[in-house]
Structures are given as C-alpha cells and as structure tokens.
C-alpha cells in the first residue's frame, strides 16, 4: 500500500498496476496479470504478457498490431460491462484514436482512470468526454502553468509555413512526431498542395493500420532505398523522434528539421534538440485544460499518476481538492512523453 491510500479504495495502486479488487481486474497494468483493461495503445499503457485484454473497438487495431497474437476483446464507447457487481465503461479521452478513460462504479461510488487525455478536438481521436466521478485519476505530464497550448489551427499554419519556406529554398522538411497518434494528426493537417508527404516505416505502419479501420488519411509514401535522394527536396518527411539522431536522415539533403511536441514550449528544450524549429503540439492536456478537466469531473479526490505529480497535488490541495500522488510506471517507455522527458531529466516525479 502506497502512503496515503486506503485498503478499501475501489482502485488500488499495486506493484502490478491499477487494481480493482472486487472485480480482480487491472487498468493499464505494467506487470503481467490475468485480466487487463487498456486505455490506449501507447506502450507504457498497453504491455505484453497479460492473459486477456479489453479495450475499445477503435483502439484495438493498433494494440493488436503492436502486441501481435493476444487474447483481446473489444467494447464500444459508453457500453457497460459488469464484473462481479462492478460496472465498467469506456469514455473518449481525446488523446489518440480509440483512447479511453475507464469509469468504474461500485456500490454508488464512481472512479475514473483517465489514462492520457486532451480536451482539444483533433479530428482524429473521439472528442474528450467529461465523466462526473468521486475520484479522478489523472496524468500531469504538462501540469505546470508554463504549458499553454495555442489552438491547433495556429500550430498547423506555422508547420505549413515552415514547409512552404523550405520547399521554396529546395530543402527537405523533416518533422518528428510519435508514430501512433501525433504523426497522423499532423498528416491530416498538412497542406498537400506544397508537396508530397514521405513517412518513416514506423509511421507508415501505423498509417496502414488506421486506413484499414477507415480513417481517411492523406496519401503518404514510405521512405525506401529505391527512392533517389534527389526526389526528396521540396517535400516533407515524418519520422519518430528517435530518427533525429540516426543515420537514416542522412539521405535528406539539404535538410530543415523540426520537432512537434509539448516540450518545445521551452527554449532550453528546443536548443537541446538542436533542430531549426520546435512546434508546440501535444496530445496531452496543458495547464488550463488539466484544471478544467479536473473541475468538470466534480471529483472530491484526485490521484495524480505521472508528470509533475508533487507540484500538481500540492496545487490541488491548496485549492481544497484532496489530491495524492501515486507511483506508477507510466511514461517509462513508448509514448513520446517518455523519450523527451527522459532527455530533459524529468522522469523523477
């Protein structure tokens, strides 16, 4: 039992994951368990080794693609499943396609485990739905007032301007974004009258998964050996963040590099990456939306899982909302949050 938590809490933070004792089921567990409910397909939330998985119909294809032959059941948003008297339902989290908050109700008490989420409608993920509850479990990846996202139209206009200017100078535009979610969000907002969109294999694999489930993404071309380097200038390449430091990008010349991430808010983070541009674009809530989300649930108790947990719980407690930080293993691998936060040394709290 972690400090400040109670034996009879409906959801408990154990060393395997978030556990619901009366139903004996885990949410986004990080160690192998019998039964797992999965909020979304990022690898810190959906891991190998569980006996059975339950997720939304829309999240399933990506999870299956990543984890292969698993025992996976799906459920529609809003539909109630009762296990041992505990009622479970999945509600849109707005983070990526199919991502869910999981509502857990038992004997009149309601908990919501929100996974990763954002409030802005990105046109790909099902729009976030506020779910009233007594206890709200939230991330706080960007839980500081210095994180304040601009409306996405402004960000995409800036990305397109950058691409247009590079194209005019005969440069390749390389932008990095996490391959599941962020990459597709960018693809559907690019102005394809400027040029072609090329993709790294990791991104294109996810594109194929989404197209197969009926998402109308703009046409993209996988980067392969067969394409001559002289074909790239003027066009745009989308790759996962890890590609920036690899020899894979050598074929793009002359090159302008950009990173799309919430961390790009900070000048220091932009400079550390030594890329020409940092676009502030995140699939997580910023400070104002984090607070709006917490307020909207009406929760009397808030449990903060990852990010600036100590700072944010202190803030909530001062506001009169009982808040606690919980130890989890979220954002230890997979999601772009991890990669960039590890780099800036923020894995601590």
């Amino acid at each position: 039992m972690q400090d400040g938590f109670k034996k009879d809490d409906l959801l408990q933070f154990t060393e395997r994951g978030i556990w619901c004792p009366p139903a004996d089921i885990y949410i986004d567990p990080w160690r192998p368990v019998k039964r797992a409910m999965i909020t979304h397909g990022h690898s810190d939330h959906s891991r190998y080794g569980h006996d059975s998985y339950l997720c939304t119909t829309q999240a399933a294809p990506a999870i299956k693609y990543r984890l292969g032959d698993i025992n996976l059941q799906t459920v529609d948003f809003g539909k109630r499943t009762v296990i041992n008297g505990v009622e479970f339902s999945f509600h849109p989290a707005g983070h990526i396609l199919g991502s869910a908050q999981i509502r857990v109700a038992y004997k009149g008490e309601v908990w919501v485990a929100s996974g990763d989420y954002k409030l802005e409608n990105d046109g790909l993920a099902e729009p976030f739905e506020s779910v009233p509850c007594h206890t709200f479990i939230t991330e706080s990846t960007f839980g500081l007032p210095i994180y304040d996202w601009k409306p996405q139209e402004e960000v995409f206009a800036a990305i397109n301007d950058w691409w247009r200017a590079n194209a005019a100078e005969g440069k390749v535009s390389l932008i990095t974004a996490y391959s599941l979610g962020k990459a597709q969000r960018i693809i559907q907002s690019l102005d394809t009258s400027i040029g072609k969109i090329y993709t790294h294999g990791a991104v294109e694999n996810m594109n194929e998964v989404m197209r197969a489930q009926g998402v109308p993404l703009a046409p993209t071309t996988r980067v392969t050996q067969e394409i001559a380097p002289k074909d790239y200038p003027g066009h745009l390449v989308i790759a996962p963040p890890s590609a920036l430091n690899s020899s894979w990008i050598k074929k793009f010349k002359p090159l302008s590099r950009a990173v799309a991430s919430g961390w790009m808010s900070l000048r220091g983070a932009r400079r550390r990456r030594s890329v020409e541009r940092g676009f502030v674009l995140s699939d997580h809530v910023d400070w104002k939306d984090l607070n709006a989300a917490v307020d909207a649930t009406g929760a009397e108790r808030v449990i903060v899982t990852h990010g600036y947990t100590n700072i944010y719980t202190k803030y909530l407690n001062e506001k009169g909302i009982l808040a606690q930080a919980a130890q989890t293993e979220f954002s230890n691998e997979g999601d772009d949050v991890k990669e960039e936060s590890a780099e800036s040394g923020k894995t601590e709290s």
């Binding site: 500081l144 210095i146 994180y147 304040d148 220091g268």
Partner: peptide
C-alpha cells in the same frame, strides 16, 4: 497562481524572463 508555483515553474524553465512570459 501562488508564489511557490511561480518559483517551481522558474526552476523547471531555468530562466525568469521566459518563465514569466510563459505563465
């Protein structure tokens, strides 16, 4: 925001001018 949150934010950003501009 409370003063301590301003200070914590400053510690994360590392630059006062930038912290103020952001909050």
């Amino acid at each position: 925001i409370p003063d301590w949150l301003m200070d914590d934010s400053y510690h994360v950003v590392g630059d006062l001018a930038e912290t103020i501009a952001l909050v």
